[in-house]
Design a protein around this nucleic acid. Structure first.
Lengths: 353, 353
DNA sequence: AAATCGTATGTTAACGTTAACCTAACCGGG
DNA sequence: CCCGGTTAGGTTAACGTTAACATACGATTT
């Protein structure tokens, strides 16, 4: 009835108990719907709970129960549609099972990666889903956390551990397929935009590109590999910039490529733009393939040929693995699943000439 | 040295204390670098801490200290570049001050909005930053949380409260400016893509559109208002679809518009695509303006005329307000700031005819 | 009529950490 | 040689919740 000036101390079970003339335990029972409580008592308690605007203290509850019903998701780049779709898949599963998802963003820096792990572990999340790129410090800390008993599920992270489940897409094969598609169309000078030759050669889709060239008797021309300019850790949203400058560089070559494969769709869109501004046509003059099949890919002109990975499924499965480990057997050996990617052919690729 | 099978019970301060032959309090002092501890003791404790792979329990610490050094950010759509940029601004400030950010996503549903608030409140986040669209239930719960003493900072949310700080951009003016720009170019039939006339007329940028038409003696033609098709709550990433179908509808009109203003850049890009596929040129046949200035906007052909809001600044300021309220005066009256938007004129708009 | 059972509570003791207070040794100055 | 201050700890009692156990009473069952 009267609004309390409850600014200093929070309302506790004990406060409710006093006002409802019962013990804290009874209030606890009412709130959690456990044990026996007489209907009349229940209602009296609930009335006070509402009147006092009581909020349970998750810290105390978690401390006592030794679980928080909370899962942490660590992603590298929040602007990335891939991360968005992933988190939807994760949430689909968690929501149904009554878990809350907290997302931490590490913006692709190793330091923040470790910080994110620590925050979530310290707040006693019941489990972690990690979707950031591997890095030495991060992997090291992850190993410690797993050793200390926190269930961990990995998505597309290049890190194996006997007690961490792992989900990924076969990006090597995806990169291979996209490149093979271009080769099958008759292209022989195929550029790759988005890796720097001095680092980040671990990128799976780039390895697929190399493999496809190899297998089809084409030699890798280093002048056709561009991108990864400044930092290798740049957040995804600026990769269209990389696509643009990379493509611009390729267009200035004496013998420019007739096709390019971009490390992701944003990069591809930057490339598309560079080609258009140079007055060339896609796919007639230069064919372009991307990776990820972001929603926009089919909504631009020309629609982008790209590689789709089952992103939401990866999120769902990672969450499912994690919950199994949490609720069933924390000690079981790791589950692992690699999804196939699917080449989506649209209008941005066509035969050479 | 030897790896413990620490799977059941977590390592606690008391465990460390026993092994280091001190009391838990001393270990606590070492870990928090408070009070007096002899160098030798400190090192002995730290050695055990490392050996046992000890992790502090944030729940217990938070319970005791009555603060968790954690801030919750609630956003509606994780795929939205706006949300991404916002969270960067927030994080910039929080990181510097030693706070951890947990992000909750509510996918634009009222129920999930409330759930997100509750999760964060129950886990005793020290404060909340709310960047979701207003809804009745959400506003109601927010009021309760604020009443129960949780500091809240709002971003672009249509909800006022005497004790919640608020940051926003003047989207009405932004919508007005964009529309005026089109009018100044001589356009008289200007479409709007992205609202349904039966609901969501509260959209500020649409109100700006209406106002601009009014002030320049143009009558609002309802057949030029399209979009908002199915759910009004659709996640942002599918809005390019809305732009495409909306624009397609406009193109089929007997008297089609010579310019369109889209509610956001994704919608604008969908519209761009529809126009191109219809064989028309931008901006010669139809001028297009978007809203938000997402990174991609300047990287497409034609580069998109759009309205930029200082997104990162909004995040920074919301976080700053929140920390002030948390650390200085929880009772102070609300701070409020509305940022100006900036019309960014690129190649997608040109004079009529 | 005693034994048994289901219902409706209350009591106690943690969960892991730390603020606040207390003790004791040591050091230099008057 | 005693006093006050610094250093290096230890002790106690919470923070808010709940699992486990204990109690009490009426209703059956034997």
């Amino acid at each position: 009835m009267s609004t309390k000036k409850q600014t200093k101390r929070q309302v506790t079970l004990a406060d409710i108990a006093t006002l409802a003339a019962v013990t804290p335990m009874t209030v606890s029972r009412v709130i959690n719907s456990t044990g026996y409580v007489r209907m009349e008592t229940r209602e009296r308690v609930l009335r006070v709970v509402r009147e006092m605007n009581y909020r349970g203290n998750g810290l105390a509850r978690g401390l006592k129960r030794q679980r928080t019903e909370t899962i942490g998701l660590v992603i590298g780049d929040i602007a990335n549609p891939f991360a968005a779709e992933l988190s939807r898949g994760v949430r689909e599963v968690l929501d149904r099972r009554g878990y809350t998802l907290f997302i931490c963003v590490s913006e692709h820096s190793a330091k923040e990666d470790v910080q994110a792990f620590d925050s979530l572990a310290d707040h006693r999340a019941d489990g972690l889903i990690v979707a950031t790129r591997s890095c030495k410090n991060g992997d090291e800390r992850l190993r410690e956390l797993i050793a200390s008993g926190i269930p961990v599920s990995l998505i597309g992270r290049d890190f194996r551990h006997p007690h961490a489940d792992s989900v990924s897409a076969d990006n090597l094969k995806g990169g291979y397929e996209a490149t093979k598609h271009l080769i099958d169309l008759g292209h022989e000078r195929i550029g790759f935009i988005g890796v720097s030759l001095t680092r980040s050669l671990g990128l799976r889709r780039f390895q697929g590109y190399q493999e496809a060239l190899n297998e089809h008797g084409l030699t890798l021309d280093e002048s056709l590999i561009v991108g990864g300019g400044g930092s290798d850790q740049m957040p995804g949203y600026s990769t269209e910039e990389m696509g643009f400058t990379g493509m611009t560089k390729l267009l200035r070559l004496k013998k420019r490529p007739t096709a390019v494969f971009a490390r992701n769709d944003f990069t591809a869109m930057g490339a598309l733009n560079a080609i258009k501004q140079a007055g060339l046509r896609i796919p007639e003059d230069i064919a372009v393939a991307g990776y990820d099949d972001i929603p926009l890919a089919s909504h631009i002109t020309p629609a982008l040929t790209t590689v789709r990975q089952p992103t939401r499924e990866q999120g769902r499965l990672a969450a499912t693995f994690l919950l199994q480990r949490i609720e069933e057997d924390r000690e079981r050996p790791r589950e692992e699943k690699t999804f196939d990617c699917e080449l989506v052919i649209r209008q941005s690729t066509a035969p050479d000439r």
